[in-house]
Design a binder for these strands. Sequence first.
RNA 1: GCGUCCAUAGCUCAGGGGAUAGAGCAACUGCCUUCUAAGCAGUAGGUCCCAGGUUCGAAUCCUGGUGGACGCGCCA
Length: 587
Amino acid sequence: MEQYRRIWKERVEEALSAVAEEEGHTIDRDAVAAETPPSSELGDIGFPMFPFARVFRTSPQNIAGKVAERIADRYASASQAPGTVTQEGPYVNAKLDRPSVFANVLDTVLSAPEQWGRTGREEGRRVMVEFSCPNTNKPLHLGHLRNDALGESVSRMLDAAGATVRKVNLINDRGIHICKSMLAYLKLGEGSTPESEGKKSDHFVGDYYVKYEELVRENPKVADEAADLLRRWEQGDPEVMELWKRMNDWAVSGIEESYRATGVTFDQIYLESETYTSGRDEVLRGLEQGVFFRAEDGSVWVDLEDVGLDKKVLLRSDGTSLYLTQDIGTAIARYRDWPFDRLIYVVASEQRYHFQVLFTVLSRLGFEWADSLYHLAYGMVNLPHGKMKSREGTVVDADDLLAELQELAAQEIHNKERADVVGDVPATARSIALGALHYYLLQATPNKDMVFDPAASISFTGNTGPYLQYMGARISSIVRKSHGVQIAPWEELDLSVLSAPEEWDLIKLVSSFPDTVSEAASELNPALLANHLYDLAKLFSRYYHEHPVITNDDPALRGARLALCRAVAHTLRAGLPLIGVPFLETM
RNA sequence: GCGUCCAUAGCUCAGGGGAUAGAGCAACUGCCUUCUAAGCAGUAGGUCCCAGGUUCGAAUCCUGGUGGACGCGCCA
């Protein structure tokens, strides 16, 4: 659709300039804007004439009339983007030649469906995306799910837009939090294992973290013991290292199981235990260069007050690294490992300040690529009845939530008596659960806080993932059943039979799908794509209720409509996975 | 105290200079002998937080308020 807009904008600019010249005016071509009229009846591309009223000293209606008259039928049978132009009030509106658009778009989609939606807008760009970054003291929760959904979706969209994407994870496997779980295990574990308890391994570790919280409430001195464990870990105490390894393996393998279940993958996984001292040398180098300063107690600081930030500590007085120090080190290491044009950190918006500081410090250290760092901040996920608070036990566990959604989906399959048709009920229920979850998390603008309502997400009516999956399944069913019906071959199809308004609106939505993908990719906003696919599904749903496809009497109409159905199906098939929603043939 | 982000229908969210501000949920009314009713159509629901400003034109941009969230650790 984008190319049509470009071509017609050019034509309108030319006509407007010509009219202006005849009347002795000059216009600013940049003031010509291509917009979308509120309904297809008015036209397909609209050009408001308001900005030119002043130079012409007449009404926009008047100008629109003259411009429209000049263009009118001039391009009615142009070889490229044929169509006509009308005046609609103060607007000049282009109406595309429908059969040629149908032919064009359908041919593009159907001849290379696996390429549909893939563009070259980000061609040649190397983009690293960091996301997830779990702690190893407890399993993933709902907040991680938003993070993972965003990271995956943004990565897939960038890939579809032609970028070379590298997904990285940084597992926070060291520090006081894991020592707390370790301590509780030492006190209460009695050699038990996830296997002996029959628990998913990361939940097993997480349970000891909860037990630690109970222990420290009873006896605050337990905190000192945890700190002591951390000291022994840092000294490399073999006994502590052995336990640390064991518990980390449990935590990480459990988390990886969750990744597999949700379709999350990484190209590289960094471990904090291997990177936590990095950045120290960089800070010392910065100190020598006079970028930083040393306080009396030996700690190293950066003063960012001139750019509206604070003074921040970069090295403790004992010379050890902090979170910020480590992030400096890992950023540098990553650029060395895989030079990027852009590094996107998918991290909660609470850490905005941290990233401002990080980016500024890297820039002051002289890394010109510091400008390519971007913090994709996303808002908190709240629950209908308030916030998630670990102390109040209202944190929604990722695995539990997914299991609950899957159960609800399975029930629904049975209620609708679809089990026989669907075949593998658990697998289908799992796909529906994922679709529900990911669509709900991604249809909201990343930046904003959101309320996650599990019941609403899986609800099978309305603006939900399952609704989109249902439409995909319905079209697939129509396409499947078409095999037993006589259809005119593609070369002989008469596309002018596609005369319903819905058909025209459908093909326009289909044709702008690649534009939406690349826009959503460059804006790093999956919600744009989610909304587009919803509009498409919604419109198709209305359409096929009123317009029989394979049960139609007219073979010409059957063939043309089926081609349109296929194109819509391919669009959903290509688009849904980009927002983490599995495409289903049957449900 | 300072900083960042947010405010649109009863609720959850779209729309981010341009044509009558849109969906979904919830409420009410119709539609299954017909490609899956997990659906479709319809009714009702709005001072786009407030006040100024910029503009031919502001829900959208700017300034100032108000309300809310989150930051401002030798935590991560």
